[in-house]
Write a protein that binds this DNA or RNA. Structure first.
Lengths: 222, 222
DNA sequence: TCAATAGTGTCTCTTAGACAATATTGA
DNA sequence: TCAATATTGTCTAAGAGACACTATTGA
């Protein structure tokens, strides 16, 4: 293996979230190889310096090859490190989290993966390595961001109603939000743009909105 | 060198802050070895899996050996990675930030360091590697935390006045705070404890406070 | 008409911000 | 007494939270 106790093993793990059926779900893969073969885990892989520009592009490459998905929003959460978190030896796992719109969740089974599932985060099975801790950490980071930013725009269809957006936020946060408060906060937000279109259901049609094309949710440097 | 293009170089960099003379200062070291010999940089070093429990303990070891200081508060910020950030090749730098009380800043010059300085963050010279970016990132993280937590308690003497605490916060944030607002927010905070002691200057004596012994500022997992 | 969803208005409570007022010390 | 700093109080504005109200559609 790569790890020889002089150099740590460097892996990238990704907590990739979506909202389906008003439920926050996480992509889990069943490991096809040792270690932890046959167990559910967050998708991840080993850094390949010759292929990867940096850790973030490494995460994109891993998602592309393992589940053949191109991800738009992806950001680092933190690292997990030490001798015991991976049976192969001293390792560093850099956890990333990503958001994928529901209409792009038809991810395909590819190499080194036995199976994959979009799992409701509330009913997650036991995971390999320290991935349960990683998942909880990514979830906390996601929720913290959702409360202060409009991160869920990355999960929306190109055109969406405010009710759609609110339901997505509620699924992520795991709690109901007040309609009035929610809309009031959007009033001053320049990241969403009002359209002159309406989408009719069986009831009163709702106005459609779109995200600003270059909206940005990285944490600002003050 | 350790890096052979199969395994990345793994380094730990530390932005260690203090407040002296009501100025926010950062510890810089002058590099004694290549690469970037003779340039100012954040203190840092290479991970040694056989010595380090994890990246955080590695950061503590590095601070101990390079400037012989034991640090209480230390936390990861994020990583910087890629082929070009270090001339030795593909590398991962895990940035940490730390806080040191002013009365413990008598750090000593040790191995692999030519010189050290506590530098006002506003007048920082050019730094080696990507350390200017790292410093700005650590500073932004520190300021964000100070606004919502009582992180500066780590910088205070064992007993301190509320005016002391306010001045420390102001030095970190780089702006004046309202006395009344500042004290009002502390009223409901259980991390600081009122003492029945007073410290007299040439004017009206100020009441002394101390930090709760086990106060904790890690981000809660919601 | 009704049910269902979209969208708005209103009240209260909390908090930030600005700034004034009072308190206590040594000189 | 005064200067300096500590400590508290007061007014206003903005925002969150709760909840009621109105609007528009298809059946």
């Amino acid at each position: 293996m790569i790890n020889d106790q002089l150099n740590p093993l460097v892996v990238i793990d990704i907590a990739i979230f979506t909202v389906q059926d008003q439920q926050l779900k996480i992509l889990l893969v069943k490991r096809a190889n040792e270690p932890e073969k046959g167990r559910w885990a967050l998708p991840g892989g080993i850094l390949i310096p010759s292929k990867d520009l940096n850790l973030e592009s490494s995460a994109r490459r891993i998602l592309k090859t393992k589940v053949s998905v191109d991800i738009a929003y992806l950001e680092e959460v933190c690292t997990f490190s030490g001798l015991h978190r991976d049976p192969r030896g001293w390792s560093i796992a850099t956890l990333h989290y990503a958001l994928l719109p529901a209409d792009k969740t038809h991810a395909l089974v590819k190499e080194s993966i036995e199976d994959l599932i979009w799992q409701n985060v509330l009913t997650c099975p036991a995971l390999a390595f320290d991935h349960e801790l990683q998942l909880q950490t990514a979830l906390a980071t996601l929720r913290r961001k959702v409360s202060s930013h409009l991160l869920p725009l990355h999960l929306m269809r190109p055109k969406f109603t405010l009710s759609d957006l609110q339901k997505t936020c509620e699924a992520i946060l795991g709690q109901k939000l007040d309609k009035s408060v929610f809309r009031r906060r959007l009033k001053n937000n320049t990241d969403i743009i009002e359209l002159e279109e309406y989408e009719g259901g069986a009831q009163r049609p709702a106005q459609l909105f779109k995200a600003r094309t270059d909206f940005e949710f990285k944490e600002p440097l003050v």
